Simulated assay, not measured.
Amino acid sequence: MWSYKIISRQVSSPDVFEEIKLRSFSYEQIVLASENFKEEIGRGGSGRVYKGCINGGKEIAVKKLIKIVEEGESEFRNEMKIIGRIHHKNLVDLVGFCSEGSNRLLVYEFMRNGSLGNLLFRAEQRLSWSERRRIALEIMEGLHYLHDECETRIIHCDIKPHNILMDESWKAKISDFGLSKLLKTDQTRTYTVLRGTRGYTAPELHSRNNRITVKADVYSFGVMLLEIVCCRKNVDESLRDDEIVLIDWAHQCYEAGELQNLVSDQEDVNIEEFENLVKIGLWCVECELNLRPTMKQVIWMMEGIVPPHQNMLTHPTSTNQEKST
């Protein structure tokens, strides 16, 4: 039988664990649960993810940080501080952790249906329009929670399809907070080294000061939204030259009043909904961050509460310099 303790106040490191209630696993328990890290189900810059099982059958995902000591410890503490205090239907739940010796591991709920990236770009059968629209809304709601409804506002810093996971009910949940930045209630920005994934990072993050606000997530979401809507990668060099970079191609179609050209010949979509989501995506990837919407405004547009912004799309961002995703 599994045993665990509740971390509540001033246990191990007060600045990390205070008022966070999570399971504390021993390294031996994690090894047994994952059968000595037998089945790798994912990997990223900060660690590898393995499938495991606890409590007589409950499936889990174990993230084993692989960066040595300093960076690994920083990533670990960051995830602990953030995910341990937030709960939302469209965010992956953190079940517990292991901090034993040099081992730093995080235990998450298991997301049975993999990543949105695999569904969009690798699946044999394309997601239907209604499914893609629902998934887009679920991601919007998760980001809105992070940006506006948490006690401590959170910038994710690495929004992309492979960081959106699908549960057993095909509900979309935002994962991988290893690069996240926290904002105090009186802050609107923070500073960081350039992070994220090429093709999804906002242009302001390439400046020397690397100022970062929630609008960086909005930009990344805009890139991903266009991928969801058009069911293709942001950069696809197999296409005609003017279609290679999706943001540029979508903006050309918008300027020409021909957004229907973005629809696949084989697909039946609600063209009004389709065009509305393309406009939202293009608004989100404005080069000037102050021109981008908030996630709350994005949801309002998605649900038809407000019409598309009249002054949107004045400064489209070209991603020709980032033809690698």
Rank of each mutant, 00 (worst) to 15 (best):
P307A: 15
F97C: 08
D158L: 01
E18S: 15
K89F: 04
Y145L: 05
I7N: 10
L105P: 00
G222Y: 11
I174N: 06
H147T: 08
E243V: 02
A172P: 03
V95I: 15
M1H: 11
M224N: 06
M111H: 04
R240Y: 08
I244V: 15
R232Y: 09
F97I: 03
L143N: 11
E100M: 04
C231Q: 13
S318T: 15
E258K: 14
R211T: 14
W283N: 08
D265Y: 10
I247G: 00
T319Y: 14
L182P: 01
H315Q: 11
L32H: 13
I271K: 13
K160C: 01
N210I: 06
V31I: 13
I54D: 02
K81L: 04
R211N: 07
E28F: 04
N118G: 07
V306Q: 02
G117Q: 07
L182H: 07
E100D: 07
T319R: 14
E322C: 01
C284Y: 11
E275I: 12
A123I: 07
E100T: 00
V107E: 06
G101C: 02
L106K: 01
T188K: 12
I82G: 00
N103M: 10
S26F: 03
I41S: 05
F25S: 01
E131F: 10
N90Q: 12
R112L: 05
M166C: 04
P161S: 03
N270E: 11
C231V: 08
S130K: 15
D148R: 10
F97N: 06
G199P: 01
T213L: 03
R9E: 14
E227P: 13
W283F: 08
F17C: 02
C157P: 00
K5W: 10
T319W: 09
S102P: 00
A256T: 02
V223A: 00
G72L: 02
I86M: 03
Y4T: 09
L313D: 02
I154E: 03
L116Y: 10
G52P: 03
M312K: 13
K89E: 11
P316S: 10
D265S: 13
Y191M: 03
N261Q: 14
E71A: 04
E267S: 12
L65D: 00
E227R: 07
L65K: 04
S46N: 06
L165K: 09
